[in-house]
Structures are given as C-alpha cells and as structure tokens.
Design a protein around this nucleic acid. Sequence first.
RNA 1: GCGGGAGUAGUUCAGUUGGUUAGAACGCCGCCCUGUCACGGCGGAGGUCGCGGGUUCAAGUCCCGUCUCUCGCGCCA
Length: 619
Amino acid sequence: MHDYRTHTCGELTKTYTGETVRISGWIHRMRDHGGVVFIDLRDTYGLTQCVLEEGSDLIQKISQWRNESVITITGTVKARTAETVNSKMPTGAIEVEIRDAILQSAADVIPFQVAEEDGAGEEIRLKYRYLDLRREKMQRNIRLRNNVITSLRRRMTEKGFQEFQTPILTASSPEGARDFLVPSRLHPGKFYALPQAPQQDKQRLMMSGFDRYFQIAPCFRDEDSRADRSPGEFYQLDMEMSFVTQDDVFGVIEPVMRGVFEEFGTGRTVDPKPFPRIAYRDAMRRYGSDKPDLRNPLEIVDVTEVFARDDVEFNAFKNVIKKGGVVRAIRAPKVVDQPRSFFDKLNGWAQAQGAPGLGYILFEHVEHNNDSTECITSAGDAKGPIAKFLSGRALTMLCELANLESGDALFFICNVEKDAAKLAGLARDKICDDMGIREQGVFRFCWIVDFPMYEFDEKTNKIEFSHNPFSMPQGGLDALENKDPLDILAWQYDIVCNGIELSSGAIRNHKPEIMEKAFAIAGYGKDVLEAKFGGMLSAMRFGAPPHGGIAPGVDRIVMLLAGEPNIREVIVFPMNGQAEDVMMGAPNTADPAHLKELHIKLDLPKAKVEPEAAQKKST
RNA sequence: GCGGGAGUAGUUCAGUUGGUUAGAACGCCGCCCUGUCACGGCGGAGGUCGCGGGUUCAAGUCCCGUCUCUCGCGCCA
C-alpha cells in the first residue's frame, strides 16, 4: 500500500464499500461525541468523513489533534445507514472507519478559520496566504484561473499561434508606466528594466517572420494598485499577428474571449451578436467613459442646443455654454413614482463630486405624434427645480433628443466638455444603481475603436501621444502631414467587458518614415527616436510586415468569471496595496557586500517610522 | 501626493450622554456526551481599546498629532 494515499478525499463513493483505503489530508473539522469521533478529512479534491468507533484505542490520541494538521488515515470504506447519509456531500454516502492514523504534521492554533469564511481581513490573509489558499473559495478561484489559462492556450494554439518566452531582463521603455529596474553587475551604473509588456519583443518576433505570436506574459509596472489592478505585476494573454487589419485581430480575439466567457460563465451569458464597436468620441459622449458598462441601459445625450436657445432662461447653464461648455442629459425611465428623496440624494451625491448639483426635469406627461418621430410635452407637464426656465418648445426638444416617455426624468450636467462627460459618466452609473436596473447575469462586451493618436496635455501645453506611440495612424503618412494632429485617429482599440477594460491593442506602425513623422509631431527629434527605439527602427528597415495585436489581462478575465470585486482574490501570492509581500518580506534590504558588487550606494530619505515601530511591524 | 472608511480578545464585531470589573459569536484550553456533518452541554483562559500627546475628578468614547490597512483620485503608452 502506498505510504500516503490510495485515493483522494473527493473520490470515495458507495462502489468502494468494503475496500481498505488510505487517504491523506488536512483535518477540516472534528466532531467529538465522547464515544464516537468524526473527522472531516480534506484535500484539494474534496472532503471525506472518517469515523472512530466507540472503544477504538486511537480516540485518546486523535482527539488531541488540532484542525489543519496533516494526517494519514488507513481504514475501511463503509456505506452509511440511510439516516446518516449526507446528501450535501459528494462522498456523503460513505465514511471511512479508521483503523490507523498517523500525524504527518501537527498544526499550531491557526490565526483564522480555514473551514469557514470568518471574514478575516486581507492583511492577515496575505500574511498566512498558505492557510487562506486552503479555503474552498480560493481553491475554486485558483483552479478557475488555471482552467481559464489552459483554455486560452488551447484556443490560441488551435488558431495557429505559437507560444514564445520573451526576456524578463530587458530594456527600459521611455513611454508609459514606471519601470522596475534591476542593477547590472557587469555594467556599473547600468540597469535592466522588467518589461511593462513584451510590446517590442512581440513586434520583433513579427519582424522575425513568425506571423502568429502569443504568450501568457508577465508584465511589471511600478504603479499604485487598485481593486482591479494588482500591484507590481500581472499577466496578459499577449498576442500579435502579421499581415492583418484591425478586423483580422478582432476576428481572432473575439471568439477567444466569447468562448472562454461562455465556457466558464456558469450560467452568465454572452450576447451572441458581434461585440458592438463604439468610437472613442461616441463612448465619451454617450457613456462618459472609454470603458462603458453596457449592462447599464442609461445613455447620455447632448442637449447643449436646447439650453442655448433664446427662450430658455437658465443662466447657470447659459453662462457655461457661452464659455464653450456643454450640457449633457441622462434619461431615467419611469421615475415619476420615486420619492423626492431619490432626487435629493442624487443631488447630494453630485455635490459630493464637486458639482453644483444635479438639476433635473420630471416629465409627467409626454405625447407622441402619430408618425412617432416627434413627441410633445407642455410646460405644465414638466416638474422639477429647473423646469420653469424652459419654454414649451424647449421641453419638446428635450423629449425628442432623449426619446422620452411619460414619467421619465432627465438629469443635467453642465461643464466644459471633458468634465461634463466624466461627471455624466459617473452619474449614469450612480442613477443606474440607485434605480437597481443594472443587468445581471450577463457579460456585455464592446470594442472601443478610433482612439485619437494625440492629445493636448494641458500641464505641459504640448501635443502628446494619447496611447501607444507604436500605433499606426489612420490615413498613414498623409494624415500626419496634412491633418490637425488632434483630429488624427489611430488604429488603436480597447476591449471592454462590464465596464472593465480587459485590453488595449493596435495595428502597429511598421514604416520608419511614419514613425519619424509621428514622433516629430509629439516633439521628439530623430535623434531621440534613434536613441530610444534604434533597434526597432533598424528592424523596420530590413523588411517589416504590417502587424498588430492585443493583450487581454488574464487576471481581470478570471476576476470577472469568478465574480470577484478584487483582483487579489484570483492571484495566489499577491502583494498588498503598498507592493509588499508580507509573507516573504519583499521588498527587503540588501547586504552591503551585495550592493557593492552591484556598484550601488544608497541615498535614503529620512525614516518615516521610528525604527522600533518598523521592527515591530516586520516581526 | 490627495480624499473617504476602518483600526477594541486569535478572528469577526458590539460598546449608550465621557462614569462600576470593556462584552458577544466563532476559535482556544478543561470536563461531559454513541451518529454528527456549522454536533451539543458545562466551565475557563484570553484585552497596551493601533501608537503618542492633550482636555477632564474620570477617556475605548472628546480634541490634536501620528502609524497601518482598505476604497477612490492622481498615476497606470
């Protein structure tokens, strides 16, 4: 018989009755009835009830073992009597009568409970992550992650993509996030950078003629964390393909995303229609966001023209419009029966966001004309604090623009365009959740396309790349030479699911002359370009195929599928919000000899914490 | 860097207007219990109320400072 197990804790059923088996695992729970003792033994596959019958000479020994100790049990599989069957457990029809038990590893008293969700805080869960990971939910999440990654690999491989490994020790990229640096021993004063993404590597592979690349790629960015952004490092399904247009990239990745969300959606559905494509500018106008959650049925409409009319007296908006501002409206359907507090709370919320308030008009009665392209309302049918400032014609225009029905309300936001769009976007989500009308049980995908190539940076007063400087501008060199830079669009796209940005991608620029011009517009001379991207430019001069790709975030995909609001719930050993691994003690000091070898001298800021307190924390 | 929330037993939390010995559940320890499966019963131990200062006859509670965690903003091509 095997030293540790003949079966797992998830597999024994009635068909094994009478067999002598050996199983190993953790003591999940113990129920000591004095004469008879039950042990739920747990491994990653399941739970099996083991029983010590009355009179067993093992009772004395075993009843002293603590939960989470690792033990090996040898015994006989017995069918339970009808009254004692537990139909909630897959192994609930049997139990193992213990003949022998070995304590493989005794557990101290555990700092939080493994067998139940006791609500332990994240700090302590991360400190004892190996205990936390034993819990059912974490086992399920991490297994899901593994299954998702396996599925992604299979789907990409089936489409003819090859998986590559690209360097971890690589060069700093001047654009984008902060790099993690690694000092070089052989080259004093020089540093490697960890890749923020294998962006240039995958382009080099296309230039190497490999045609279809993918990788479950580790990416490193030294930026602050968020609930959906793990600190320090994360994984992407990175892919790139040659001789393709934007449609070709969508044609490959859309079925992969759809497939994996259908495969692991467990009842949640994906709309069978192609993912809608929304131009960036439309997304900002209609949803106030470049990552709209399409489960939210509310849309934003521009009603600036109504408030600019001479027969509208609302000067609070008029004065902003005169200075170039816009008015955006959100239609809230069928809210006529909402209590006054519904509107007051939203107003208070808007003020907390820094807005003067959230004006609204409640349209009690709206009549549609026969041809149904027009609707009318009269002043008496419009209620709310700002209704009195609008003429009947203006109110009718609002009805038409927002396609209102009787009982609907419009909420108004007025500001310069960028701020109005942003607040309208937030208000759109706030109103949706207050009304409780966000769609449940679905994954709503969309593509955001036609991102602008450049944007005006108000801090530096300069034109900057708005996204990836390697993207191909729509219209190519001609557009760069002849259009207003701020009007130039890029072959740059995002994929969004339920309001979470899963990925950015682009058709890349493969022509050195376009690259030079693109960088010149952003104020970078040929020398800068040559210094920073010399290798890439050079590769472009030896026959570079047109190519493009995308890189969906694996952690975010798993997070969505697991239904977790926090990305750290789907990562085995995440760092905390301060990018520390509290269990491993990373980052940590280096000993002087090691630093010397790396030619590094420290120039530390003044200590923020008393040394004593810092020491207390680290123990 | 900025803003919100939190910090009380091993864990999750309660703690009134500032007023007796700071409580509960789970966990832990001891005893009892022959069928439970979140077993049950009895008893017990366990607290620098994050830390420092202040107000007060009296502070978990009020004030100031500070640290930590978390959410958001900035940042994240």
